[in-house]
Structures are given as C-alpha cells and as structure tokens.
Design a binder for these strands. Structure first.
Lengths: 234, 234
DNA sequence: GGGCACAATGTTGTGTACAATTCTGAAGTA
DNA sequence: TACTTCAGAATTGTACACAACATTGTGCCC
C-alpha cells in the first residue's frame, strides 16, 4: 500500500488510478496539509497527478461520499468544513460506536493483533519525536480503525474510518490544545487493556478517551472561514 | 422527490441527473425488482435512462460506495450479494446503532414527527393491502431511517440508511418467512412508544424488533445465485 | 461616485471516440 | 469426449472536445 501512495505522489512512472488519487488526497487532508475549505480544482489536480480530469472527478466524488470533500454543482470541490453541529454529531456517533467495538476487539484480540497495535503506537511515537505532527495525527486516527477491524466488524470499521477522517477535519478547525501527547498515553492504556483481553476496561478507556478528545474541542470558535465571507460579516 | 423518480423512470422529458438514476436503481433494489447478482451493464442502463454512460458510471460508483453494487474492474457492476458473514455484521451493526437512536428519537420527537411516522405506517399498510410487497418492504425500511433522523443525528441516520438498504439485499437472499405482516405490528408499537416520548420502551422495542428480523433469516441457506451460472455448476 | 448590465474568462458537466481488457464461441488436438 | 487455443465481439477504462454555468472585469448610465 505504501508503494501505491508513493506512486501516486510522484506520478512519474505509472499513471495513478482514481483510488490512488483518492488515498493521496485523503492522506493530505488527514495530515492537515490540505486545510478545510481549500478549493480542489480539477485541472489543477489533473496536472499534479498526471492524469485526465476523468480520474480526478471519480476520486473527488469518492471523497465527497465520505464527506471529506464537498462538491457544489458547477462550482467545484472543496475540502469539507464541518460545522459545530456536525462535529457534535460525529463525536456522538463515535461515542456510541467505538467503546462497544473496543470491547469486542479486546475479547477477540489475538497476540498478533496486539503486536500490530503496539507497532502502530511505536510508529506514532516516532512520528511525534520526528516532529511530524501531521503523520502522528494520521496514525493516531488509524489506531482507532485498526481496533475496529480486530473486532471482526468490517462494516462498523468502515463507519469508524469515515468518522475518524472527519474528526481530523474537526481537529483542524476546532482544536483547543497544543499538545497531542496525552493521546499517546490514552492509546497505550487502551492497547494494554486489549492485550489482556479486558473488554470492560477497553470499553471504559475508549469512552473516556473520546470524551477527552471531545472536550478538547472549542466548538464555539468561529471556524476559519475558507470561503464564505458573508458568514463573517453577515 | 416523487417527480424526480418518475422523470428518471420515464426519461421522456428531461435528462435525469446521476442522482436520479442512483435513486431509481436504489429503489429498484430495495423493492426486489433487481435481484442480487444482477449485472448492470452501462450501455444497457444508458439507453434505458436516455443518458450517456458518463452519468450511469457516476451513479454506479455512488451505489458501490453504499455497498449496494459491486464493481469489478474491467468486468462491470453487479447488484451486491452480501455473504452470510456480511449479513451478520450488518445486523450486529444495526443492533448496536438503532436501539439507542430510537431512544434519542423518542425523547426528542415532536407531535409533527409522530404524525409523519404514523402517515408512513399508513402508507405501509396501504402497500400491503395493494399486495405491493416491494413497496411495503421499501417503506418498512424507510421508517427506520425516519426515526434516526428524528434523533437529530444525520450522521448516524446516514449509516442506518445504508444498513437498511443492505438489509434489503439480505432479505432477498436469506429470508425465511413468507409473511411480513408481523413487522407492521412491531412498527406500530415502536411509533406508539415514540409518541409517548418513552425512550426506554422505544429502545427495547427497537432491539427486540431487530432481533426478530435477524432471527427470521436463514444464513445457512446457499444464496440464490443471481447470474453467474458458473458458480452453480462450479 | 455608485450601481447595474453585459461581455470575457475560467471552471465544471456531459457526450463521444478510442484503447484496453474480458468474455464468447468455435476450431483444433490429445 | 474433454481440454486447450485463439480470434471475434462485446464491455469497460480513459482521454478529449464541446456545451453549460458561474465568476470576474469592464463600460455605461444614473
């Protein structure tokens, strides 16, 4: 998978598929290299990736389905800019889904699963040490997706994946704190609970972790208005 | 919205948009007019709807995102055929999401909301009386979506919408019983609980309703092989 | 000077043509 | 008879061209 992303990024060798473009853009949004509200012009992207607009359009529509991108008819595609209302919904949804899923994961986790999770956390730490905040953020989200997958629930895992992705946008808009270090500790504790197959603890830890994240948002903060100035001056 | 669907169906007046095509196909799948496994040829659909393949492709990709359609590269699009494993996942997900959502809905429901739900049930009854099983099935699913919307949870409502849609495919493949009448009673009780703002009862009724649906499936049954005869003759 | 109408420009939406791949069928061989 | 091989047909994937729409800039009128 790393190969695919690299291929798409370079676009020197082989023409990337729409999925590759999709992943590349998705990753860029995850890592906050693309800010909410940014316009995603088709011609522009087509040139960057070295493909025709057809591929780009497919990728954008795909991202729009996951609500990472908003497409306004005849006006173009923009990186989504969740409202405080949406942010609340998304975290409510996560608080509904993830704790129970974490419990299932803890019950079903094999030593191999745990090893994967620990390796993941190690990468997260490394990224933080290298001061790559974007990558750290991305990995941090992916851990949640991994846990959902361990629960043998591809359907719910897919839901959580979109929620995590959108959470990244929310963090970009409404994040209050500077440090993200605390999360690592929460993740450590969570993985430990899963390692010892303690469903109850995993559920509770996941819940408090999400509440913690949620409370680290300032939803009253006026979102950085990428586009619509009328809202600012309205 | 009825207009849109009709336009798309006829395709005499105005060229339908990809969303219209999407809705039309979605509806056809919901109502079991399109069986799981059916091939959805692009040229074929393009002629039926009176548009170019471009529109059709967009619509199919959209449906593929909701897992109603499977797209195999270079081979085409087919109505999805959920495996027993997926069926289990989908109902587990519904059992996780819907009872709590029903509780929220019951707490927040206004008299107008209840009126809408009751009108919906009336339509459901009418469809059953008219022996339009397809329509009845569709409406039956939509009630669940309506309830989720009342809970002021667009995000979760969207999830439930896809789960309901996929449930329709599962019913097409694995349904055991003949009669669907019992559902109507469950829906009645559910709406009554919501009408009296009884969150606890709504949650419990929704749960038992889903368990009832789930138990009405025979997941050991070999899925009816829609098209690919090679699988039957293996 | 302010406001409006209208042309110019750029971007997106849709249809179509061509290339690439898969499927179908028949012929040939063991 | 069963299996393989290979060409033809059909279908999908991609690129491109044109049309439709939105935005922006200019000039005119009040």
């Amino acid at each position: 998978m790393q190969t695919t992303a690299t291929d798409a990024g370079r676009a020197d060798r082989k023409p990337p598929t729409s999925d590759a473009v999709c992943q590349e853009l998705s990753r860029a949004i995850h890592e906050h290299r693309l800010a909410p509200g940014t316009k995603l012009g088709e011609d522009e992207l087509a040139e960057i990736f070295g493909v025709s607009r057809t591929i780009i359009r497919t990728a954008l529509q795909s991202l729009a389905h996951g609500k990472l991108v908003e497409i306004h008819r005849n006006r173009g595609a923009f990186v989504a800019k969740p409202t405080p209302e949406e942010a609340r919904e998304i975290f409510e949804a996560r608080e509904l889904l993830e704790p129970r899923t974490a419990r299932s994961a803890a019950i079903k986790a094999t030593p191999e699963d745990v090893a994967v999770l620990r390796a993941h956390i190690a990468k997260e730490h490394a990224a933080l040490k290298a001061d790559d905040r974007g990558l750290a953020l991305y990995l941090s989200g992916q851990l949640h997706v991994h846990i959902a997958r361990i629960a043998a629930q591809a359907t719910i895992a897919a839901f959580i994946e979109t929620l995590v992705a959108r959470s990244s946008l929310i963090v970009a808009l409404y994040w209050k704190r500077q440090r993200a270090l605390c999360e690592s500790h929460a993740h450590n504790a969570l993985v430990t609970a899963i390692a010892s197959n303690d469903g109850q603890a995993a559920e509770e830890l996941m819940h408090s972790h999400l509440v913690d994240l949620h409370s680290a948002l300032d939803l009253k903060k006026v979102p950085v208005q990428g586009t619509s100035l009328k809202e600012i001056l309205g």
